[in-house]
């Protein structure tokens, strides 16, 4: 598990237009280019905010990356403030 690599991926997904497009087209193909475990890839694809936060990812990166799910900040807050069993694919 690498908090640093998770932050690298989420930073790219927050600020890099080409990374955002690649993620929307085929997230697993994009993420295969990073040094991530299979579990980490699933967490990112599932927008599992709780698990990513628990792994030390900066919440500002989570907010930027959440916009990829085409969701607003109200839904972000509902998800991050909600219980873990509310997690699901965005």
């Amino acid at each position: 598990m690498s908090q640093t690599m998770l932050e690298k991926v989420l930073y790219d997904l927050s600020v890099d237009r080409s990374a955002k497009k690649a993620f929307r087209d085929d997230p697993r193909a994009l993420l295969a280019g990073y040094r991530l475990t299979a579990e980490e890839i699933e967490l990112i694809c599932d927008f599992d905010l709780h698990a990513l936060r628990e792994r030390g990812v900066n919440p500002m990166l989570l907010m930027g990356y959440w916009q990829l799910a085409r969701q607003d900040m109200t839904s972000y807050l509902r998800r991050i403030a909600g219980p873990r069993d509310m997690e699901g694919k965005a």
């Binding site: 640093t4 932050e7 690298k8 930073y11 790219d12 927050s14 600020v15 500002m60 930027g64």
Partner: peptide
């Protein structure tokens, strides 16, 4: 900075 200008690099 809000993790926009500067990245993990």
């Amino acid at each position: 900075d809000h993790y926009i200008l500067f990245g993990p690099g």
